[in-house]
Amino acid sequence: MVDESRIPAPEAAPYVPEDDEVRARVQAMTALGASSRDGGDYPLAESRLRAALTLAEAAFGDDSVEIAAPCNELGMTLRYAGRFEEAAALYDRVREVLERRLGPGHPELASVYHNLGGLAHARGDLSAAEPAARRAVTIRERALGADHPATAADRGALAAVVLALGRHDEAAESLRAVLTVFERTYGPGHHEVAVVLHNLGTAEYAAGRVEDAAGSLARSLSIKEKVLGADHPELAATLCNLARIRQEAGDLDGATALYRRAEGVLRGVVAAGHPTLLLCRQALSHLQSARRSAGSASE
């Protein structure tokens, strides 16, 4: 655990720790911030990661390799919070630093391209999302091999983009292969398995296999609840997809309950314009109108 009281105040006597000590401190602060994000506390994660980034910049310079990890993790945090422009600037900064310092094909860049693809996907810019996601797969596969779980994770991110582009069967086939790797590597109850199941359920739904989709999404939700807790903001997307299935089956009460829960886990955590939060509120408004119309028709 990092003892932050050891960081000297401005008026303290000069203190110049060895570079390795500062690197360790930056790494620990970055890990702590990432842990806060994974726990769903985006404001605390942002604060901790900004502190790590500031320390890295002060110790090693604005364009040092050492700024890459806190900068990348901060970008992920802001993306999850719906602050896409800020996240994009951070990812681009990391990419530029790593390409200049390590070379354009260095394995460290795979994670950056993975995140750039995911951000472009979240923003709806699929023309930028697919090449970035493919670049991540190419770099990672060259470094680690086709069957490595990190390569599988990149393939899963690419499959999500392919799904959004309407190539449902291609996406589903790729996601099943990723699921096999993750279940073998991590076990059936791991968070990464839940993420793949969510995307697989989305692909199955888009291909018209609604029953299969409901099963994959329900399993994803169950794993996320056990791993992340019942109020984690990451549950929202899966809740929304399950709600849509309920709504189209005519179960307006069930759909309303799921959308309300999704809206609840996002409220106050993500930006007001976050697309999933807006989707929840629009769906709830539509369902309320539908229920009023149904009530009037029955009178």
Rank of each mutant, 00 (worst) to 15 (best):
E85H: 15
I223E: 06
N72G: 05
V265R: 00
L165T: 10
D63W: 06
G124R: 02
R267T: 15
G39T: 02
K226N: 13
L78P: 03
V94M: 10
Y80L: 12
F60P: 07
S127T: 12
H232G: 09
G201N: 11
A257M: 12
A194S: 15
A172K: 11
L55Q: 14
Y80K: 10
V65T: 14
R209Q: 06
H106G: 05
Y259N: 05
A236E: 06
H191F: 14
L221H: 03
S222Q: 14
C71L: 15
L200F: 11
A272R: 13
G82F: 09
G40K: 06
V26F: 12
H191V: 08
A52L: 10
G105P: 00
A56S: 15
T276P: 02
L197V: 06
A120D: 02
P14R: 08
D19C: 04
R142W: 04
V97A: 06
I223G: 03
L116D: 00
A52H: 01
L242Q: 14
A249V: 02
E11C: 13
A177V: 12
S222F: 09
V265I: 10
P149M: 08
T54C: 03
G124Q: 01
R95C: 10
R292F: 05
S220P: 09
I7T: 11
R100C: 02
R167L: 11
K224G: 03
S127M: 05
A51G: 09
E99K: 04
R83Y: 06
E130A: 11
L221G: 02
L44D: 10
E263S: 15
G105D: 11
A177D: 11
G117D: 00
V97E: 00
S36Y: 12
A34Y: 10
T202D: 15
S293M: 12
R50Q: 15
Q288M: 02
L163V: 09
D92H: 04
D41Y: 02
R95S: 12
R23I: 05
P104D: 05
S289R: 13
L98F: 00
T151C: 03
G215Q: 14
A52W: 07
A87E: 09
R184F: 12
V195P: 02
K224T: 03
G254A: 14
V94E: 01
R209A: 07
L98D: 00
R292Y: 01
R184E: 15
P275A: 04
L163Q: 09
A34P: 01
G215E: 14
P275I: 11
A159W: 01
A243E: 04
L32Q: 14
